[in-house]
Design a binder for these strands. Structure first.
Lengths: 238, 238
DNA sequence: TTTGCCTGGTGATCGAGGTCACTCGCGCGT
DNA sequence: ACGCGCGAGTGACCTCGATCACCAGGCAAA
C-alpha cells in the first residue's frame, strides 16, 4: 500500500512494528478489533499540526511512524519544546481525559502516520474495557513524571551548559555503549535545541563550539559523537 | 476531642468542613465507610515531613486542615516549591498510582491534620469502587495541568518580576474583588517566595520594594494589599 | 547561474540578576 | 536584660547570557 510522502501506510495494528510498546495496540483480540473500528489513520507531512495548544480536545493521536514535537508558547512568541515524540507515543491523552484544551501544540518534525481516535469513541471504549483504562491511568502518571522532570530541568538546572549537557546525555542513555563514547543522529536545528533547553540559538551554537573545544563531543556530518560521558555528567551534577 | 498543637481532631468525614471539595470524602455511604476503615489520622506539627522526594510511596495523605508545601531539590541544595496545598488536597497520589518514588517532598507549613491511606488498601479500594477510580484519574490529569502551568511559568516567563507579578495575581484571583484592590494574608517568607518563582531571597526583597514604590502593592503588617491589578497583569503579559 | 532563504558561527555590547557582605529589627528563651 | 537567630532591606560588584549585527555555506526554486 503506497501513500503520499513516500511512506507506506500501516493499516493493520497486528503487524505494526511499534505494537509492543503501544498502550492501545497490545490488546486482547476483541478490544483490538473494536479499537480498529473507531480509529482512522492518516499520513502527515513535515510541519503538519496534529493539534494546537488551546484547542478543545477532538481526540487522541497515536503516532505510528515519524517524529513530532510538543511545544507551548507565550503570547510574545517565545516557545519551549516540552517533548519529542516517536512511534508508539499517544498524543493528546490528558486533554481528552480531562476534557480541557490541549496544553501543547503537536507538530510533525518528520512525515509519518498517525491514528486518530475521536474523544467520544475513546471514552466509550475505555468504559467498556477496564484493562485499557488502567493503562491510560498509568500513561497519565508517566506523563506527569515527564512533566516533573521538565520542571526540575527548568527550575533547578540553572545554566544553559548544564541543561545542554543534560540533553546530550538524555540522547545517549538508551544505547549505553562501550567505552564512554556514543553516537546519535542529530536531527534538530540549533533553534530547536534552544527551545528545548530554554535559551537562544546563539548560545546553543556557542555551546557546541565550547564542548567541541573541550573534547566533550564531536561532529561527523550530522552525527553527534559523545566523547566524554563522565565529564558531561560532572557538568550536570544536580 | 482535643489534640496536640491546640487543634481539634476531625474524626468523622461526614462532618468534615472540606467534605465537599474532597475527592475521597463526598462518596456514597458504603464507600465512605470502607474508606473510614482503611484510613488513619494524625496531627502534624509545623515542619513535619509527610513524605520525602525519592522515597518509595507508602500511601496517600489527605490534608484536612493546615497547609503544606510541595518541593523538589537538586543535590546542591537548590529548592523549588511547586505547590502549596490546603485542606482537601490529596498528596502523593501520583507516586502511589504509578508506584514510583514520590517526586516531591511534602512539608507542613502550618500544623494540621492529615489522613493516611496505605497504598495497598487504596489500590484495593479503587478496584472495588470504579466511581472513585474515575475521580482519581481526573485528579491525576488536574495535577498534570498544574505541572504544565509550572512549566510555562518557569520556561516562558523569563524575568523574576514577571513571575512575581504572576504569583501575586494567583493569590487574588479567588476573591475577585471590588475596585481593583484585594487583600491577602501573607504567610510566606521571602525565601519561600523565592523558591516558588525560582530566584533569590534578595531579589524578592527588591521586588517588594520596587512594587511598593510603583504603587502596585502595599503592606499593612502581614497583610498584602494589591493596589493596581491591571498594572500587574500588564507586567505578566505572557 | 542567480537569487533567496534558512541554518549556523561569532564578535561586541550591555544589563539584569546572582552573589557577597553588611546592618537592622523582632521574637524568644534563659 | 541580654544574647541569639532568623527574616528582611540594601549597597557593591561582576558574571553570564540575551541581544544585535554580520557573514558564510547549503539548498531549492526560478
Amino acid at each position: 500500500m503506497r501513500a503520499p510522502y513516500g511512506l507506506n501506510i500501516l493499516d493493520n495494528c497486528l503487524t505494526c512494528p511499534v505494537r509492543e510498546e503501544h498502550i492501545f495496540c497490545n490488546l486482547s483480540v476483541p478490544a483490538g478489533q473494536h479499537l480498529n473500528e473507531i480509529k482512522s489513520t492518516a499520513i502527515y507531512p513535515k510541519g503538519a499540526m496534529l493539534f494546537i495548544e488551546g484547542q478543545q480536545p477532538r481526540g487522541v493521536f497515536v503516532l505510528c511512524t515519524g517524529k513530532a514535537k510538543l511545544s507551548t508558547s507565550s503570547r510574545e512568541g517565545k516557545t519551549i519544546i516540552t517533548k519529542l515524540s516517536e512511534g508508539g507515543d499517544v498524543l493528546g491523552l490528558n486533554a481528552v481525559i480531562s476534557n480541557r484544551p490541549y496544553e501543547v501544540t503537536a507538530e510533525m518534525m518528520e512525515p509519518g502516520q498517525a491514528n486518530f481516535i475521536p474523544r467520544d469513541s475513546l471514552l466509550q471504549f475505555l468504559k467498556e474495557n477496564g484493562e485499557v483504562a488502567v493503562r491510560v491511568a498509568e500513561q497519565l502518571s508517566r506523563n506527569y513524571y515527564t512533566a516533573y522532570e521538565e520542571i526540575r530541568t527548568l527550575g533547578l538546572a540553572t545554566s544553559p551548559s548544564e541543561k545542554f549537557a543534560k540533553l546530550l546525555l538524555s540522547w545517549t542513555t538508551k544505547p549505553a555503549q562501550t567505552d564512554g563514547s556514543a553516537q546519535v543522529k542529530l536531527t534538530l536545528t540549533h533553534e530547536e535545541i534552544a527551545e528545548i533547553i530554554g535559551t537562544t540559538r546563539e548560545t546553543v551554537s556557542r555551546l557546541f563550539s565550547d564542548f567541541k573545544k573541550k573534547q566533550l563531543l564531536q561532529l561527523k556530518g550530522s552525527t553527534l559523537v559523545i566523547r566524554n560521558r563522565v565529564a558531561l555528567e560532572k557538568i550536570v551534577q544536580s
